[in-house]
Amino acid sequence: MKKIVAKQMKTQCRCHGVSGSCAVKTCWRSLPTFHEIGSHLKKLYEHAVAVKCRSHKKLRHREKMKRHIPISHDVLVYMHRSQNYCRSDPSRGVMGTRGRLCNKTVEGPGSCNLLCCGRGYNTQVLRYVNRCHCKFHWCCYVTCESCETMRDIHTCK
Rank of each mutant, 00 (worst) to 15 (best):
M1D: 12
M1H: 15
K2C: 10
I4P: 00
V5N: 07
V5R: 14
K7R: 11
K7V: 06
K7D: 13
Q8E: 08
T11F: 04
T11V: 12
T11Q: 12
Q12Y: 07
C13N: 06
R14T: 09
C15L: 08
C15I: 08
C15Y: 06
G17Y: 04
V18M: 11
V18C: 05
S19P: 03
S19E: 10
G20R: 09
S21H: 08
C22G: 09
A23C: 08
A23D: 10
V24Q: 11
V24H: 10
R29N: 08
S30Y: 09
S30H: 11
P32L: 06
P32T: 01
H35Y: 15
E36C: 06
S39N: 15
H40V: 09
A48Y: 03
A48S: 15
V49R: 00
V51R: 00
H56C: 07
K57L: 13
L59C: 05
R60C: 01
H61Q: 06
H61K: 02
R62V: 05
M65H: 14
R67H: 11
H68N: 13
H68V: 09
I69D: 07
I69M: 14
I71C: 01
H73P: 02
D74G: 03
V75G: 02
V75F: 03
V75S: 03
L76N: 04
V77D: 00
V77R: 00
M79E: 09
M79S: 10
S82R: 11
Y85Q: 08
Y85F: 15
C86S: 04
S88R: 13
P90G: 09
P90D: 09
S91G: 02
R92V: 01
G93R: 04
M95N: 11
M95T: 11
G96K: 00
G96T: 01
G96E: 01
R98Q: 09
R100G: 02
R100D: 04
L101S: 10
L101T: 09
N103F: 03
T105N: 12
V106I: 13
P109N: 07
C112H: 02
N113D: 15
C116W: 00
C117E: 02
G118T: 02
G118R: 04
R119F: 05
G120V: 02
N122W: 14
N122M: 11
T123M: 14
T123E: 07
V125W: 13
L126T: 08
R127N: 07
V129Q: 15
N130W: 07
R131Q: 14
R131D: 12
R131N: 10
C132W: 06
C132E: 07
F136I: 10
H137A: 06
W138D: 01
C139K: 12
Y141K: 09
S146Y: 13
S146R: 15
M150A: 11
D152S: 14
H154A: 06
T155Q: 01
T155E: 03
C156G: 05
K157F: 06
